[in-house]
Design a protein around this nucleic acid. Sequence first.
DNA 1: TGCCCGATTTGGATCGATCTATATCCGTCG
DNA 2: CGACGGATATAGATCGATCCAAATCGGGCA
Lengths: 352, 352
Amino acid sequence: MTGLGREGMSECNTRRPVSLLDVAKAAGVSRATASLVLRQSPLVADKTRLRVVEAMQSLGYIYNRGAANLRRNRTGTIGLVLNNIGSPFYSALMAGVDEVNEDGSVVTLVANSVDSPDRQIRQIRRLREHNVDGIILCPAIGSDETLAVELARLDLPCVQALRHVELLGGDYVGADYRSGIEKAVRHLVGSGHRRIVFVGAMALHSAARERNEGFRHATGLHGLEGGLVVAGGPDNVYDVAAFDRLLKTRNSPDAAVCYNDVIALNVMNRLRSLGRQPGRDFAVIGMDNLPQAAGAFPALTTIDTRPHEVGRKAAALLQKRIAQPGLANGEHIIVPPSLIVRQSCGETSAAA
Amino acid sequence: MTGLGREGMSECNTRRPVSLLDVAKAAGVSRATASLVLRQSPLVADKTRLRVVEAMQSLGYIYNRGAANLRRNRTGTIGLVLNNIGSPFYSALMAGVDEVNEDGSVVTLVANSVDSPDRQIRQIRRLREHNVDGIILCPAIGSDETLAVELARLDLPCVQALRHVELLGGDYVGADYRSGIEKAVRHLVGSGHRRIVFVGAMALHSAARERNEGFRHATGLHGLEGGLVVAGGPDNVYDVAAFDRLLKTRNSPDAAVCYNDVIALNVMNRLRSLGRQPGRDFAVIGMDNLPQAAGAFPALTTIDTRPHEVGRKAAALLQKRIAQPGLANGEHIIVPPSLIVRQSCGETSAAA
DNA sequence: TGCCCGATTTGGATCGATCTATATCCGTCG
DNA sequence: CGACGGATATAGATCGATCCAAATCGGGCA
């Protein structure tokens, strides 16, 4: 009763962490005032503020955000759910998110769905338990209404990034894959190519479908002999046998637009194995502009889908949603991609 | 006074989240019992447990870990401080950390120091405020005693990864860069190379110094004409001019061990510009085994430093420290690297 | 002197879980 | 019949901040 029983022996064995109450006592003010100082309130007199700040420093006070969160019902954290945490593409996205978050002093909790809808739901739940204020979600392949139901239940602002699932609705930030592929085809056509193959086609998620559509649309636009498409799948694979066969046909293609850079690099290697020299006998264009594209041989022409920028935009949008939960959502922000011309698409053959 | 004032109109406009108290009331038990159910305590009767679980489900209860943390003084989160969040190398590390964390149902808060000691300290503080249970730190270049002081002040379990700062002491998990470089040199010597250059030498952090030492030691061991070293710096650069000059000397080197894969790829491209064919006229070995190494042309021989495994080990060690804070720390776990032989080091010339 | 008002300060309730010590139940045994 | 003990259940304090309404202070003015 005489002092809460902890005054007795300061600097004793049981090092209890310094709380705001300790600071307040040391500064001779109330908890409430000390709290106001913490939050830079203009209500406290400068003299008092100074005293409190000094007490904080001398005691080595550390702000306990967790305690504050409980009351404020806001944590200053967001969740980022990726399908493949180890991929450079996603780390660029994450870097963008982190940049914006740091400005808003928000921290990022990362989770990996490994493109499994079940894991995805588990991860989202886990993040929710940690009271993230919102999440940025790159939806896993095969996401279905279970996800929509769960998100509704959790009542959590959610921005989709890179891919979007129609039935979720809501906000989305992604690249314009469609126009990206179209740019690539236009460039090749401009360099005199007429037989262009799209390598790595699949329809497992929106980003893939948009690329396919972009290719179909572009070939139509330029009146190319359509239908030169080689199938692909997740994990950066493509149907190598089909590609090989296609190359052996009369009137075989002399240019490829690839689903992404990794496939493009594989295609270049395959071409060499088949005795063709990428960038000279055969033009190759990739997509994503991964770091390895510039260093490849020949340096890979590619469509930069700017994942870093997508990350920035997604984080900013999520911040907006968190700040004003009432607003109608459903915004779609589409980042325009750009074509980075390097050697793999045979600059020289432009004259042909 | 008649029921805390929230019973009156259930399902009304002010959707207060469901708390454990609500669940308890609905199940006709006390908060304490409901809490025991949450934590799978064997103390509750099966009949009761069932009732509580049903109440949770029908009310759509969501566990508020933040509230629990306040009391338990443990959050189930760790911080991961990286120097370059966008790099594939670090994302591999992160993937490893995440794997282990997920098994222990721990979540990762990432922060990016961008190799700036100031930012690094800010990030660590920020993580600490969020009450992470510990951190995995890849110390920034130029980390000094300020960091040591801060870490001591925060009183937080900390495992260093990939690089270590001597004056911090404590736990460390990293690759055996020294022996990795030695393996590379041995392999080249075994293939008949005698004039080997180390490209990208620098001494900005422990991982770099260990590579340098490894090279010095290996050249001594094999009685090579030593001293063939080309300087390097952060951000994957090396002294291109010096490298070019070296190649023009009489008795110029015919093999290079590079600081990392990115530099190795640049070196391969540079060699081609200078009219040499990597993998045939000149052997190149990289370090790290980034995804792009396998896809390069020629496929890059490299030393796999296994960042994913380092991440796993670091996360596991940190969990141990968190579980048993008393234990003396200062463990050094060194992951053995392995040499991945591909085409860039000229398999064929082994016969020469 | 007394009253009013803006500028500060503060007590006490609150967020939602966990922990500790205590209470209750119920069958069994002396 | 009462005591005992194992099995369950619970009340109340607690973690460390924030929020709200109310108290206090200190001049200035009538």
